[in-house]
Amino acid sequence: MPATVALAVARYRPEEEPAPTLQTYEVPFREDWVVLDALNYIKDRLDGSLSFRWSCRMGVCGSCGMKVNGTPVLTCAAFLSEHLPGPIRVEPLDYFPVVRDLVVDLSDFMRKLKKVKPWILREEEKPLAEGEYRQTPDQLDAYKQFSMCINCMLCYSACPIYGLEPSFIGPAAIALAQRYNMDSRDQGARERLEILSGYDGIWQCTFVGECTKVCPKNVDPAGAIQQYKLTSAVHWLKTLLPWGAR
């Protein structure tokens, strides 16, 4: 094991330079260090101006997503030892505007997420006094996988379609819409249909499949999208029938 390892970190200082550049730092190598620890070391001891976001360091808050050697990862879960010998390239997530260094702006996603109504929609809400909604373990199982999403944006950064067509709603938002569509307590599938199968929805997706591969929570957005294509196509066929769904 080496004593030190080099990190080539993307720097972008909007007041000084027109485009990002790579800056190399030498940090101690430790078996138990993740890339985030190395970045913290740099910030604390080598260069206090380095900017990056992180919060929980336990893989649930979704703040610390970056590209490490070209692949989007949560830096709190990417061990240095997996990327030896280095230099390890650390860059901001692709396809989002870079605010500074490794910090990107996610407003685009925030806006899209709202459009798919990722909350339980019901024709009529049951009063609290009637107690809880029941749900069998099988019904829970139907959507549980999609409920794990932490909005870390790795899937967007892995999706070339989002890069090429920024209006695409994108993997996480569609997976989250499916999370509610599949929930036995939800009745909002019709309401989400228009946006999901509209111009910027599922049909933009060509099933590259990278979103699922980089997902740190095994959410499988690619699966969610393909499954929804079938749902949407079946719905389309039904509208042809005289007695079909309106």
Binding site: W203, K229, A233, W236
Partner: peptide, 10 residues
């Protein structure tokens, strides 16, 4: 608009 996209996809 692409109303027939689902059909083409099928």
């Amino acid at each position: 608009g692409r109303p027939i996209t689902p059909f083409l996809w099928l």
